[in-house]
């Protein structure tokens, strides 16, 4: 075991230190650990290259002189191997450390800890005391965020079972383009392959595993998509006029675009994104909330109240 590890480290050092490409025969001659028949060495080297690549180390293949059909050579570029964040200040190190700490106990925890170790190896002290904030914790609700971010970066096709608002389960095929988080929930947005439109899914409403496969070849990421704006809603909705008792209805007030005082009550105007969701929010507030308009919403609420009375009478 140790011999293989030694050989991998020695190969890395040799390929990093060289200023020109090293040919295979030079590597076999000079790097310790390549032994046995030509065939054995060849096999060892192929596997070692794959191993280093899987660790994220980029090995460049080239030749000394493009004019001659030379033997291929190998090297690792220092600038690709090393963490290069440019000139970095103690404050920036502290910001990055806080960013890494946010993952404690969540899906990117291990990756974040590895990144933190590398940051701590840069020899730049941190000065977290100068920051006006403490570490926040990211809560991923058990979602497989690493799988999703990888799928976004590689434009993979992901397939999953999604629970819709009527509790029906449908299989969705999506090329994800964005990931966002609000109020502790994570959302993934992507081009739904059945309708070829952007849809947003709450990740904790995905049932079972998400599988990722190669995405469609001709996929074009939608222009101007901004994951920070997926919650803004559709700007062309209709408006509801709702009376709310003073001091009540805080969550309805948060949605209001205007508030007018009417003595004991306030009249709110708010955009309707979804009639059923709004009706349910109005009902939650009981006798402290009364819908003036639209008629559609009033009718829906009256029908629900009649059922409630008969169900509980």
């Amino acid at each position: 075991m140790s011999r293989k590890i030694e050989r991998l480290i020695n190969l890395t050092i040799a390929l990093l230190a060289t200023k020109r490409y090293l040919t295979k025969s030079e590597i076999f001659r000079s790097v310790e650990g390549y032994e046995g028949s030509a065939e054995t060495k060849e096999r060892m080297f192929e596997r070692d290259k794959d191993d280093l690549r899987s660790l994220g180390i980029e090995i460049e293949v080239g030749s000394f002189d493009p004019l001659f059909n030379d033997e291929a050579g190998y090297r690792i570029k220092q600038e690709k191997y090393q963490l290069d964040l440019g000139a970095i200040t103690p404050t920036e190190i502290s910001l990055l450390s806080l960013a890494a700490q946010a993952w404690q106990g969540a899906s990117f925890d291990e990756a974040a800890q590895k990144a933190l170790l590398k940051l701590n190896s840069m020899g730049v002290p941190s000065d977290s005391l100068s920051l006006p904030t403490a570490a926040h914790k990211i809560n991923d609700g058990g979602g497989d965020l690493p799988l999703i971010t990888k799928a976004i970066a590689e434009q993979q096709l992901i397939t999953f079972t999604y629970v819709d608002s009527q509790l029906d389960r449908h299989q969705r095929k999506v090329v994800p383009v964005g990931l966002s988080s609000r109020s502790g929930f994570w959302y993934l947005s992507g081009v739904d392959q059945d309708v070829q439109e952007i849809r947003t899914f709450r990740i904790d409403r995905i049932e079972g595993e998400i599988s990722a496969t190669k995405g469609p070849k001709d996929f074009e990421p939608p222009q101007g998509f901004d994951p920070a704006r997926v919650f803004d809603g559709n700007p062309s909705q209709s408006i509801a006029i709702i009376d709310v008792r003073k001091g009540k209805g805080t969550s309805l007030r948060a949605l209001a675009t205007s508030v007018q005082s009417l003595g004991e009550w306030d009249q709110l105007k708010l955009p309707i994104y979804n009639l059923n969701t709004l009706a349910s929010l109005v009902l939650w507030h009981g006798i402290d909330v009364y819908v003036q308009e639209p008629l559609e919403l009033r009718d829906l609420i009256v029908a629900q109240l009649e059922t409630l009375v008969s169900n509980h009478g």
């Binding site: 890494a100 700490q101 946010a102 965020l145 988080s181």
Partner: peptide
């Protein structure tokens, strides 16, 4: 000297930091 500088971040490590920065 050849190994003296930390290795670059992997994709997952980079994403973890970028999301963490966004939160921050």
């Amino acid at each position: 000297p050849t190994l003296a500088k930390p290795r670059s971040v992997t994709f997952d490590e980079g994403v973890a930091l970028i999301l963490g920065l966004d939160l921050l």
